[in-house]
């Protein structure tokens, strides 16, 4: 190793090499997409648990949602591998019912990575949503219906605005977890999943290039922080009214 000097060389290297910032961009777009999908899938479930299920079923369903939290990331990803690989259960099942002729490989593509990531982060969306929706007075919804609102209007004008702090808080946590995840993209996406944390790991451990690895780490942090900040500004929330509250 040569002599050290201060400078922005490692950051300049990042911007000069398209592979690097493409990876960061890709990670960002995928993370935002995963956050969005998680919200769309999770919101009805949270609404069901908080508002529709009866008291006993409510606690049970909530606990069921938490089960994946108690199981290691590694085990969850392994489960998806067993299900989706070429010799896996889904592929065998499709052959059995005659939908496809040969084995199908479901692993190592972006869709699988999204499915796996949504699975991993789902409960971090559901928990804040259930907490917020639980605090909502049912009479607000009833009043909306009594005043002649359709289901869509009630959802759009009453429920979603009320749940906004929970939605934003869930989105922030989910986005940070997704952008920083390592295991799921690697195991389900294979070697060319091009996730930014993988790039950091490679710089550090494989190439032993700690300087640029450190630069990449800082860039990931700055980048995710900026995204969260933009999200907060767009939704008119603050950090203390969302994440810090729950």
């Amino acid at each position: 190793m040569g002599a050290y000097e201060y400078g922005l060389g490692n950051y300049i290297e990042f911007f000069n090499e398209p592979v690097y910032w493409n990876t960061l961009l890709r990670t960002a777009v995928m993370s935002i997409f995963v956050t969005f999908v998680t919200l769309i899938i999770g919101f009805p479930i949270a609404y069901y648990i908080a508002k529709i299920a009866r008291q006993r079923a409510k606690a049970g369903l909530f606990l069921l949602c938490l089960i994946p939290l108690w199981v290691s990331d590694l085990v969850r990803s392994f489960g998806w591998i067993v299900l989706l690989r070429e010799t896996g259960i889904v592929s065998s099942f499709l052959q059995y019912i005659g939908l496809v002729d040969g084995p199908v490989e479901f692993l190592y593509n972006d869709a699988t990575v999204v499915v796996g990531l949504v699975y991993t982060v789902m409960l971090f969306m559901i928990v804040p949503l259930v907490t917020t929706l639980d605090g909502m007075d049912d009479s607000l919804i009833e009043a909306g219906f009594n005043l002649g609102g359709s289901r869509l209007t009630v959802l759009r004008r009453i429920i979603i605005p009320y749940a906004m702090p929970g939605i934003i808080s869930g989105c922030i946590v989910v986005f940070m977890l997704t952008a920083g995840s390592y295991l799921t993209p690697i195991l389900l996406g294979g070697k060319n999943s091009q996730w930014f944390t993988e790039q950091i790991y490679e710089q550090f451990i494989t190439r032993f290039n700690w300087e640029s690895g450190a630069a990449f780490g800082v860039l990931l942090l700055i980048f995710t922080s900026i995204t969260v900040w933009i999200g907060l500004r767009l939704s008119g929330q603050t950090l203390s009214s969302t994440v810090a509250k729950t």
Binding site: R76, G79, L83, I89, F93, Y119
Partner: peptide
């Protein structure tokens, strides 16, 4: 949704009892 939550866990657990060299059907 709950099937989606349970599926990978069941898949990972169930094949521990399969008398085969591979975790597959």
């Amino acid at each position: 949704f709950f099937i989606y939550l349970a599926a990978p866990l069941i898949a990972a657990g169930a094949f521990a009892f399969n008398d085969s060299m591979f975790p597959a059907l």
